[in-house]
Amino acid sequence: MSKQTDQGRRDFLSRAATAAAATTVAPGVFLHSVADAAPRAEPVTSKVRWGMLIDTTKCADGCTACVEACDVENGLDLIGKPEGASDAEWERQRPRWIREVKLKDNLTDRITTMPMLCQHCEFPPCVDVCPTGASFRRADGLVLVDRHTCIGCRYCMMACPYKARSFIHENVLLKSTAVPRGKGCVESCTFCVHRLDQGETTTACQDACSKDGHQAIIFGDLKDPNSAVSQAMSKYPTVEVRADLKLNTGVRYTGL
C-alpha cells in the first residue's frame, strides 16, 4: 500500500519536473530555433551590395506612388503636424525619405522626372563626418543611422550631397514596430532594411512603382550578375548623380 503511494508520488514529482523544465526551457529553445531559421540572424556580408536603377524615362510626371508607399512603409505618415505649427514650416520640417524632382535641361529644355533618395554611396560623406559613428555603412551597402548613438548634430545633413536625410523635429507619438524612430535623431532611406532582413528582396517604392505599371525602379543585388538590376545596368547607360564626387552610389539613373 505504502509502496504504491510512494510510486504515485514519485511519478507525480518526475512529471511535474519535466513539465516545469518544458515550460521554462522550451520557449527559449523555440525562439532560438525561430531565430536560427530567419535570415536576419545571419550577419550581412559584402557578398551582396544592394542597389537600385531608376529609369527616368518610365517615371511618370505627377505620379507620387513611390513617395506615398515609402511614407506608409516607414511610418512617415504617422508623424502629424505639431499643434501650432504653420503649414508652410511643417512642410519644411517633416521627414521625407524619397521625393519627386522635375528637371529641365538648361540647353535643350528636355524635361526629366525622377525620384531622389539616399544614394547609398560606397564612400558616404555622411558616414565620414558623423562624430560618433552613428552614420554607418553596412557590409551589404546600406547606409544607415544607428539611432542609439545619433546625438542629433545634423552634420551628416550638412555633408550629404543629395539632401537625402531628415531630422525628426517633433515628438513621435505613433511609430511602426519595423521602423522605430525618436525625436532629435536623423534618418533616411534604408532600402527597406526591415524587409531585406526578413529575406524579402523588394523595396516599398519599387513595389508601388510596379503596381502602377511604370516599372521605373529596379532593385536588387548589384554583385549578382543575374539579378534584374545588374542585367538592366549592363544593358543601358547609367549615371550617378554628382559623379564628380566619386562616391560610387548604389542608386543609378538612366535617361538622365
Partner: peptide
C-alpha cells in the same frame, strides 16, 4: 542645440576619427 543633448556622453565615448567633429 543637439537633437539628443542627453547623449553627450555618447559623443564623449564613441568616436569616428574621420570626423572633424570628433
Amino acid at each position: 542645440d543637439l537633437g539628443q543633448p542627453a547623449r553627450l556622453i555618447v559623443a564623449m565615448t564613441t568616436y569616428n576619427f574621420k570626423s572633424i567633429f570628433a
